[in-house]
Design a protein around this nucleic acid. Structure first.
Lengths: 205, 205
DNA sequence: TTTTTTTTTAGAACATTGTTCATTAAAAAA
DNA sequence: TTTTTTAATGAACAATGTTCTAAAAAAAAA
């Protein structure tokens, strides 16, 4: 009897629809304004039903955060179309910046907001696999650049952290609206220009 | 009669105590957990009284944010003890990083949180003076570096934004706990190392 | 000193929020 | 058909930011 299979399928369906609606509302109105009751109404269930699928609001957004990482990594993989690791690195940065600027709310959730990290602390997982995977990917490309003598030879870990920090800083100042009203060029322009300068600084002359 | 003077003074006193308590609770428990009722209880007034001094919660934290900027700028001025603008720039970065790492909640409020920006939008001030002042200060030091040929000559605005972004990125990854659990050295160490690498990259060889 | 006016403070109330828990409805198994 | 397991609900709780009306206190006027 395929009865229990169907029930499992149905459970997964409602779970998915919770996530879909949560993400939709989140992108539309932000984290605080996305309420459990809002989600419940949209999927035509009572609020309590949601708690049968997720421990709390944080778990919902931890899940969305994880899925967003999968998407980002998929995008980042496109950098492998280049052969030269330096080109790969620059492409990686460009894609990262583009992803952040096109999905500022998701980026916020992935790299700034407390909700996913709070849930990670509740789990007793020692590692933040999503973050680790992405960082290791960056590090391996930089390792290749160093190996081929395209970048000055320094501590791999620190250099990787620097590169990440730089692009992260570039986009978060904009996303968090600290670049506005201080007499700067428009966000995309200044980010691109700053990125170009940083790329030049990195390349061994 | 100095009666009205005294009343003004008293009003200012309660205003100050609201801010002091708000800041204390904020540093202790964060923005969300610092409630109007909490503040009211500590200053021994009713919650409604607070609304006679501040439009809403955002205005309170916008004020704290402004005061924190005054503190940061005071710290940053210490960079002027150096004569060489490149030394000034590096000192500036060091102080900035130190301030952020020693006052993560304040830094969050100044450069990440929405509350102060939301209140800024409510005011119809065109400029974010706190941010503009700090950025202009950075820019003027970098301008001197370029003038003296210590840094490659590029667009001043973009380079300044890059430098700010980099230190901002360095500290926010740590503050927002994205550097944890991905197999990195401890925050302070890796930030210092990455900062050193960035400094070297900047200096014209 | 007494009365009037102004200012300050408080208290109750509102609409929301995340979350829990006992109860009901539904579906599956016996 | 009856029993057992599962799913779903609705009411309730404590807490939040904020508003509004009434009371208390202080100052000004008489």
């Amino acid at each position: 009897m395929g009865v229990s299979e169907r029930r499992i399928r149905e459970r997964l369906d409602t779970r998915q629809s919770i996530l879909a609606v949560a993400r939709e509302l989140f992108l539309l109105k932000g984290f605080e304004a996305t309420t459990i009751r809002n989600i419940a109404e949209k999927i035509e269930y009572s609020p309590s039903t949601i708690y049968q699928h997720f421990k709390d609001k944080n778990e919902i957004f931890y899940t969305i955060h994880s899925e967003a990482f999968a998407e980002l990594v998929r995008y980042l993989n496109a950098s492998e179309m280049h052969k030269n690791p330096m080109d790969q690195l620059i492409a990686l940065g460009q894609i990262y910046v583009q992803f952040a600027m096109e999905n500022p709310e998701l980026y916020d959730l992935m790299f700034i907001m407390e909700a996913p990290i709070d849930f990670l602390n509740y789990l007793e997982d020692t590692n933040w696999i999503e973050g680790k995977t992405a960082f290791d990917y960056l590090r391996s490309i930089i390792a290749n650049c160093i190996k081929q003598g395209l970048i000055i030879e320094t501590d791999l870990e620190s250099l990787s952290y620097l590169v990440w920090s730089t692009v992260h800083g570039l986009v978060t100042i904009s996303i968090k609206k600290r670049g506005l009203r201080i007499g700067l060029s428009d966000p995309d322009t200044i980010i691109q220009r700053s990125f170009a300068i940083f790329s030049h600084l990195l390349i061994k002359s």
